[in-house]
Amino acid sequence: MKKGKPERLIIDGKRLDGRDLEEFREMEAKIKVIKSADGSAMFRFGNTIAIAAVYGPRPMFPKHLQNPERAVINLRYNMVPFSTEDRVRPGVSRRSIEISKILKEAIAETVFTEEFPRTVIDIYIEMIQADGTTRCAALNAASLALADAGVPMKDLIAACSAGKVDGHIVLDVNGKEDNYGEVDMPVAMIPRENKVVLLQMDGLLTKEEFEKCLQLAKKGCMQVYKLQKECIKNTYKQIAEGDENV
């Protein structure tokens, strides 16, 4: 693959991968991908693939970390070494600690943690392949995995990114656009309440551009939400039809 900045990221209203400005990459969602986990899911935006596994609620040790009023959410976001062009150094990094923290806080908004005092809900997310918008894919996978595990929650969380590339507001920023574009803005929301639970932005936007970007991302989230619901429905339909692979 050629490295370096492409001259233009948007040519005649089409992006490098041939998409329109407000078009998603191909999305895919799957639940029950890991047999030994209580709940698991895979979510894909184009070349970005996240796999999430949920264990628990289960007893929390060491004991002093227990919360007598609610369950503790323990989340690990990790990129596997072969997920990007340059090898990712294994282990925790500044970036993975940050993302783990914000994802955990987003998930705590939707899970009824008060129903399971003194326990822990472990969520492990592995990025198998990374090409922009990884935290959104991770969050989508995690929320599906939680639902699959039967953890009571207000609603699924849907996330997607918007940004500014070559002066245009675009939906679903990919790796190249993230690196060489102007702005990348991941947004996650609880669609039923229309409540934003994660919003980050790097780069500069005017107030009007920000509003436009946010509206676009919110619209995108609803599309993701629809896909997540369809995924769950289809999985149980397939089981009902006797599909051995589920």
């Binding site: 209580d38 709940g39 628990g56 609620p57 289960r58 009824f112 129903e115 399971f116 639902a147 699959d148 595990a149 039967g150 953890v151 009571p152 929650m153 207000k154 609603d155 039923r192 769950i232 149980y236």
Partner: peptide, 25 residues
């Protein structure tokens, strides 16, 4: 609103959802 993936159970004035997975409480 439902909290979990499950099957709806209607009984007189109650509406509940029987989960398809989850831990024993």
């Amino acid at each position: 609103i439902s909290k979990v993936i499950g099957l709806v159970k209607l009984k007189e004035r109650f509406i509940s959802v029987i989960p398809l997975s989850g831990k024993y409480i």
